[in-house]
Design a protein around this nucleic acid. Structure first.
Length: 729
DNA sequence: CATAACGGGCGC
DNA sequence: ATAGGCGCCCGTTATG
């Protein structure tokens, strides 16, 4: 029944609707026209791909429209429903074909005799591909349900189910102990795709996987950091011409491997190691031309895999009481600020819904109106901070944002990520997570609701939740001025080299070069703060390293772009060696399309560097300029990451020789150790040596600052620690 | 009700 | 010729 309050607008809408319907009835859209319309919509890549597949399948008569809908206009929604139908059809067909066409040397191992035979065959192998199938991706909670092996000499690919729901199979513990001579034999190499996961899974069941000599996933990063996808199936499809489907696309997201019938499990799992092995051979062929990268990969990146497993499995302890109390106080502050901001800004808000302070779309016009000035954006640093002194509402907004970010991303969220099995918090460290070779940290792809988190971007306030285990302390050691030392070494710039030779401040030394003033005058003010010269050099340093534009620099220095450009020109005139080095990095990238990290151990491929940009072509200019900036930055960042990784390997090795010593974390230019609280000054000296002597920048000395902590971020110097200890005694 | 893009913000 | 290099994650918004 119609409400009497119905508006004219609604009536008009109805009229338009029926008019459209009449027109459609008069001239039904052809299916080709419908496709034209749907494909020209703004579709996501996934949708576009699916739509094209549906169109082909319909043309081939594989699928068709539901008769009851045939009268209606063919919509994108209907097309995508057809895709689901097509996908199901393909899935069943793919599985049937996979089983039917399975190679004869794919073998299912379900008896003790068969396994004994495999163990016997393994003794003749020098390198074997290994993979585990599991119930999920939590390496501390999920379990192994099967093991696949590819034995290249014997030329067999086997799957050993150990915990599938159905079918005859061996017990997991029995299988693991039968395989133990192989798993523990370091003279038999193991090749895996994403070895960190499998090593951790074996450890989950009290077994090691020793002798891992290759990881096709991390090796692929070394071969091409720009690769679109590093998933085994994608790499096999692309480089081995073996079309491969992911588990999810074959079995659906909800399926677990233990639910898969053994005949299908065999063909899927054995194919995994088959592909891993083939990919390994493919990669070895390509590495022949890259001996320096190969050497680095095998001596640094491969041993590092075990270090990461140690690091991740050790995990963290969080002070939950502290987190709860802190979180409460943050929420109170947020609530108070929200009330005040809402009251101040609501009068300037137009719209039916109440103002949402988290919506910049709503906030920008409201805030602009409130301060009587049109804001270009709501960027805290660039736009809001400079106005905070004049407008209290902006100061409050900045505080509100800081607090909600802190509680939303860190203080309230982290406590929920405790692992149910270990009771600790486990981060993920991805050793090849960046294009330059640095670690990334955070959630794995394909592991939706896991407890993984990014440990590398924890702000000071959140770090305080992390506490040392009982009886231990956290010792943090950084590489002092790591990237500047790296540049001093790579460029040979005398001002920098001299600074580190004499143990002087590098920024002050740059300022001496530039201003001609004495060192003392440009280093620190009597109160310990930076002089304006030193501050300027810090900005200029980042500008040189990152290739900051004169516009951004002008903002940072509070000058005009012209003045900023002039400053940089004059600065570089006073540092000709550094200037020429940066130029040479750019010319090298332009010529070769890549740059080298230290000692040619890694490449950063920059294909855009070879673009010859035409005047007026904004897009190519942007790309070219970006590549020029990356050329120098990648060399510095990448070489520094090599130093960090080499040092991590050394540090982990050393920790194994000491009771209670463990690597606790790493944040780019910093290593953190967990050691017993009764450590000595000599122990600190050992850490200092690990940091400064594991990887040298030629003649440029390394430095380190060391801190002792009970709570992450709340550190004291080594002297303070021992002084306090002596006072207490 | 999913997915992806975006603005913004934390670390180095 | 305006976006400083490398990341990950949050809440909102667009989209069907």
């Amino acid at each position: 029944m119609r409400s009497p309050s119905i508006t004219d607008e609604a009536v008009t809408k109805e009229a338009v609707k029926s008019a459209v319907k009449r027109r459609q009835a008069a001239e039904p859209e052809t299916i080709d026209a419908a496709w034209q319309r749907i494909l020209s919509m703004k579709n996501t890549d996934t949708d576009a791909e699916r739509l094209r597949a549906v169109r082909v399948a319909m043309a081939e008569g594989l699928i068709g429209r539901v008769p009851s809908l045939a009268a209606k206009r063919f919509s994108k929604a209907e097309a995508l429903r057809l895709w689901a139908e097509l996908h199901e059809l393909n899935r069943a067909e793919t599985l049937r074909k996979m089983v039917e066409e399975m190679p004869v040397n794919y073998l299912l191992i379900t008896t003790a005799e068969a396994l004994a035979w495999i163990v016997e065959l393994l003794r003749d192998e020098t390198i074997v591909a290994v993979d585990t199938e599991t119930t999920g991706v939590d390496v501390y909670t999920d379990v192994i349900v099967g093991i696949s092996l590819t034995l290249p000499v014997a030329d067999v690919h086997v799957y050993i189910p150990v915990a599938h729901d159905e079918g005859p199979q061996l017990d997991r513990n029995y299988a693991l102990s039968a395989l133990r001579p192989f798993l523990y034999d370091t003279s038999i190499g193991k090749v895996l795709h994403n070895a960190i996961f499998d090593i951790a899974m074996f450890r989950r069941h009290g077994s090691d996987l020793r002798g891992v000599t290759w990881d096709t996933m991390t090796a692929m990063h070394a071969l091409n950091e720009n690769e679109e996808s590093f998933r085994l199936k994608d790499l096999a499809t692309k480089y081995l011409a073996v079309p491969s489907d992911t588990f999810d696309s074959l079995f659906g997201k909800a399926a677990k491997f233990n639910m898969i019938p053994l005949d299908i499990a065999l063909v899927y799992a054995a194919k995994d190691t088959d592909l891993t092995w083939k990919l390994y051979q493919f990669q070895r062929r390509h590495f022949v031309k890259l001996p320096s990268i190969l050497e680095y990969y095998q001596t640094v990146e491969v041993p590092l895999l075990y270090v990461i497993v140690d690091l991740e499995s050790n995990g963290y302890i969080l002070d939950l009481d502290f987190a709860a109390e802190y979180g409460r106080s943050l929420q109170e502050q947020a609530k108070r600020l929200h009330t005040e901001l809402f009251a101040a800004l609501s009068p300037h808000h137009t719209g039916d819904e109440p103002l949402n302070l988290n919506s910049n779309q709503q906030l920008k016009p409201a805030l602009s109106s409130a301060i009587g000035e049109e804001l270009p954006n709501l960027d805290a640093k660039k736009t809001l901070k400079p106005l905070a002194g004049q407008h209290e509402v902006i100061a409050k907004l900045l505080e509100y944002r800081k607090i909600t970010k802190l509680s939303g991303t860190y203080i309230d969220t982290l406590p929920t990520k405790q692992n149910p099995t270990t009771g600790r918090w486990h981060s993920r460290f991805n050793p090849m997570g960046t294009v330059t070779g640095r670690f990334s940290s955070g959630k794995d792809e394909d592991s939706g609701s896991s407890q993984q988190f990014n440990v590398q971007n924890q702000p000071y306030e959140a770090r305080r939740m992390f506490v040392a285990p009982p009886g231990k302390v956290i010792v943090g050691a950084d590489f002092k001025a790591q990237e500047i030392r790296c540049v001093a070494y790579l460029s040979g710039e005398p001002a920098l080299v001299e600074a580190f030779e004499k143990g002087l401040d590098p920024y002050a030394m740059l300022a001496v070069r530039f201003t001609g003033k004495p060192y003392e005058q440009v280093n620190k003010n009597p109160d310990g703060s930076d002089t304006k010269e030193r501050k300027m050099m810090k900005v200029a340093w980042l500008a040189a390293l990152y290739g900051t534009s004169k516009y951004t620099m002008a903002e940072q220095l509070g000058t005009t772009p012209d003045e900023a450009a002039k400053f940089m020109t004059e600065l570089f005139d006073s540092l000709p060696v550094l200037r020429d080095w940066i130029k040479s990095n750019e010319r090298f990238a332009e010529k070769h399309g890549f740059v080298w990290m230290d000692r040619e151990q890694r490449k950063r491929r920059l294909p855009d560097a070879t673009i010859r940009a035409k005047w007026g072509d904004r897009d190519t200019f942007r790309k070219k300029n970006r590549a020029m900036r990356q050329a120098t930055n990648a060399r510095v960042q990448g070489s520094s990451s090599i130093q960090t990784k080499v040092t991590m390997n050394e540090a982990d090795d050393y920790c194994k020789s000491r009771d209670g010593w463990r690597l606790w974390g790493s944040v780019h230019d910093e290593l953190l150790f967990e050691i017993p609280e009764d450590f000595t000054r000599n122990d600190i000296e050992v850490i200092r040596k690990l940091m400064t002597e594991s990887y040298a920048w030629g003649d440029v000395k390394n430095g380190t600052d060391i801190e002792v902590m009970r709570r992450w971020g709340e550190g004291m110097s080594v002297d303070e620690w021992f002084n306090a200890k002596e006072r207490a005694a």
